[in-house]
Amino acid sequence: MSKKSMPIEKGHIMMFARAIGDENPIYYDEEYAQDRLGGIIAPPTFIQSAAQFNPDNPLRPKIGEPWFGSGKTPTGIEKKENESKDSASTNMLHAEQHFEYHQPLKPGDVLTPEVTEGEKWEKESKRAGLLKFSESITKYFNQDNELVITARSVGVVTEKVVEN
């Protein structure tokens, strides 16, 4: 397994379905799923949990490294005076997410992502100040090198805090 590949696991799918409040047995009941689709499949947005297998995921605490969430103090990372707000990851929000499905995801699959940076653009907003958008496209290939899902994500960095 290469360091960035993502094994699709039955227990992970079950917990994901629970987290989105989806009781559909196709996501956990092997017998039920066997009769219908030949086995368990993953929910349409499950691929997002590929973040668990990204060794560089900046939104997962790393052992022995300071974390920006609270502990003894409200944040574990002190901001330097001249540091821009962007760098603290607190202003990065998810603006858009698009999925194109080529094949269902099944337990046992091992996916490998191929990431391409997309466009970058800016927009002025009354609510949040200057908005900086950036796009990334990830193609997920399975163990047979077949394209399974194409994901396009747009992130936005806002100048001000957004409260609806």
Partner: peptide, 16 residues
């Protein structure tokens, strides 16, 4: 947060 791997404290850490 736990299942997706997105542990950004903005979603779970009231103090932060």
């Amino acid at each position: 947060a736990g299942v997706s791997g997105d542990y950004n404290p903005l979603h779970t850490d009231e103090i932060f």
